[in-house]
């Protein structure tokens, strides 16, 4: 992975905001809308996809030539999504996470590392 620099943190931040955008989509999915169009064209969904787009740009920026971010570090950074989403779901959406899910997530995280490192 090499030395951690500011661009690794930028990439990690991009994964964090992408995870947050999933929370916004879930909030939008839980609301009632008068018609199908507004189910998709509402502030939550539009903001979520805006954030996803920003996340994509930040990832590209982090991986820019000369920023010394090796693509192999994606194993750890991208896998953080599997940690961020459940934690944000628990904190913001008040979802309950059972022990089996926690164990499953640990396996998924470990498997992602074995896969890519």
């Amino acid at each position: 992975m090499g030395r951690i620099n500011i661009y690794h943190l930028v990439w990690l931040f991009s994964v964090l905001i992408a995870s947050f955008s999933q929370v916004l989509l879930k909030v939008a999915a839980g609301k009632k809308y008068p018609d199908r169009i507004r189910e998709y064209l509402n502030p939550f969904v539009i903001t979520a996809y805006g954030i996803l787009f920003m996340s994509m740009l930040l990832t590209m920026f982090a991986l820019w030539d000369g920023h010394n971010v090796n693509y192999s570090s994606s194993a750890i950074i991208q896998s953080m999504e599997y940690v961020f989403i459940p934690v944000l779901s628990m904190l913001i959406l008040k979802e309950k996470i059972g022990m089996r899910k926690v164990i499953g997530m640990l396996f998924i995280f470990a498997g992602s590392l074995v896969f890519a490192i």
């Binding site: 309950k96 059972g98 089996r100 499953g104 998924i108 470990a110 498997g111 896969f115 490192i117």
Partner: peptide, 24 residues
């Protein structure tokens, strides 16, 4: 082989995770 082993571990994780009953 690392990719295959990683995939198997991920699959095990998904299987354990989805078997959760959604309660604490």
């Amino acid at each position: 082989p690392k990719m295959l082993i990683g995939s198997i571990i991920i699959l095990i994780g998904i299987t354990i995770g989805v078997s959760d009953n959604g309660k604490n």
